[in-house]
Amino acid sequence: MSIDVLLQQIVNGLVVGSVYALVALGYTMVYGILQLINFAHGEIVMIGGPTSVFATKWLLSMGRPSLLALLIAILVAMVVCAVVGVAIERVAYRPLRNAPRLAPLITAIGVSILLQQLAILVFGRNYFTFPELISRDPITIGVVTVTMNEIVILLASVALMAALLWLVHNTKIGTAMRATAENQKVAGLMGIDVNKIIAITFAIGSGLGAIAGVMVASNYGQAHYYMGFMLGLKAFTAAVMGGIGNLWGAMVGGLILGLVENVGLIFVRGDYKDIFAFVVLVLVLIFRPQGLIGERVAERA
């Protein structure tokens, strides 16, 4: 194994890992506040993909410049995903707020399947080509080859994560979110509208997921109804690895998982790539169920 290959895989791993991290944040935020694993989150990310494809194509056909089209498409995807996320919480999870924890978990799996099927109805079964709005031509920097698209993904992810951390720790809404996560009942009696804060949490998590969906679509140049499934599982693994409920954990977990997967590719054939995530998941659950950063003992539904 040459050092060049290793460096290249580290860079690839960081790009993929930053997307995992964005998606993992959606899982971990919801878990932190509701102790619910929202298995439908992967599908919300998926919805961001085709939505942005259709939005960009339409905007380009209207003659909009490509960068503007991309930005508007991202906004459209964020709004659509946030609405879907909030609607799911309202319709499927809120009525089960006080039910045994297995009930919302199974509901989440049901919602996930429902969203996939709805996506087939709305978007169709085809693969959609995402227009190359940011160049996917390889650029060689030293021994490493990247695309402009990958650089943008990495930088945008870091910026979004920093913005989220800042929001959670320095704003009124963030304080209310942390208070609700720590003790819903007391937060309510202190005047926080808990339902509203939960809805906002779903909206933010889904919005970040939407951006991740656009990133995946633009990076691989395609989107389809099934793209959220494996991505969701891996991001969930990342969240568990970092310590579910912990924002830093989701970010670190996402990056580590991306690195493990891509560095692991040096040793095994590409077909086996997906194994790493689940080996990691099993190992973490056996040896450190609270996650790398998590302090609380992980509770499982």
Partner: peptide, 24 residues
Amino acid sequence: RLFGEMTVLENVMVGRHVRTKAGA
């Protein structure tokens, strides 16, 4: 029942939430 992981100041700030209007 304080919010143990939040600072002393933040605990008090939570109480102000209900008297303020700006949203998300």
